[in-house]
């Protein structure tokens, strides 16, 4: 494991799973924001490209004790990403202030080693060229390049919004490296009507997410594997927290 930088700014999310109804608005907002092509048949979930996927969690009990929860899964932007060191061509790195794991499409050769390394399945491959129905490509935003077939892509925390927020700060004469809470939020954060996602600088006490991730109900996915994700989940339900990681029978879950 090669070592990774520590950053002053650490963009992160706290996703309250008790507030997510699984409606899918975040997934749609993500596709539209990041120029992800629509897919006529997306029923093969192993071949449908979506940076943000909402998983369905169940407490495993039969009716009527059954409970269900939904877990939106963006890229975890791991502090110690398992995907970065394996890339043979430095198409992905974690090097920028803020700690967002980058993925550079023109560099990627499509070997998919990073996909094999990621236990969250956050990385997706362009199995085919992206196709929009005729005319619909006019709705592409200018912010994110369209990826050709044969490269890997993943959630970037809407990195372009980070850049835009910094530019806006510059034009307004503010410090681009001291963004206020809310200056930069991702498309999914913005879209969620339930406010299930809170986005901000985990290291900055002025940002709401800073407190939220310290909650005793906060957890991260597969924490014990040492990936150190920047995405936190919050749930008051013990069974949900338990599904955040693998536990042997006798092991206790936090919170």
């Amino acid at each position: 494991m090669s070592s990774f930088k520590e950053f002053k700014i650490k963009w992160g999310m706290a996703i309250d799973l008790d507030k997510c109804t699984g409606c899918g608005a975040c997934m749609v907002a993500c596709q539209a924001e990041n120029n992800i092509a629509p897919q006529p048949d997306a029923s093969n979930k192993l071949k449908s490209l979506n940076w943000l996927v909402v998983y369905e969690l169940t407490n495993g009990k039969p009716f009527p004790e059954h409970e269900v929860a939904y877990l939106p899964r963006p890229c975890m932007q791991c502090g110690k990403p398992s995907c970065v060191s394996v890339c043979p061509v430095i198409a992905t790195e974690k090097n920028e202030e803020g700690g967002i794991v980058s993925q550079i499409y023109p560099r990627c050769i499509g070997c998919r080693y990073c996909m094999a390394s990621c236990p969250y399945h956050a990385r997706y491959f362009n199995w085919f060229d992206p196709i929009w129905p005729e005319g619909m490509d006019k709705t592409l935003t200018p912010d994110v390049s369209v990826r050709p077939r044969g490269v890997v892509e993943k959630c970037s925390f809407c990195h372009h919004r980070f850049m835009q927020a910094k530019d806006k700060a510059r034009v307004e004469g503010r410090d681009p490296n001291a963004l206020n809470d809310g200056d930069y939020i991702t498309s999914c954060t913005e879209a969620c009507p339930n406010g299930a996602i809170v986005f901000g600088d985990v290291n900055n006490p002025a940002h709401k997410v800073h407190e939220l991730v310290k909650s005793k109900y906060a957890f991260r996915l597969l924490e014990r594997l040492g990936t150190d994700p920047q995405v936190y989940y919050v749930s008051r339900r013990e069974w949900v927290r338990r599904l955040g990681d693998n536990y042997l029978e006798n092991e206790k879950v936090k919170g």
Binding site: T92, N95, E96, S102, I104, P106, H159
Partner: peptide
């Protein structure tokens, strides 16, 4: 010189 500073 981080990649994402110039790539989108």
């Amino acid at each position: 010189n981080a990649c994402f500073v110039c790539h989108k």
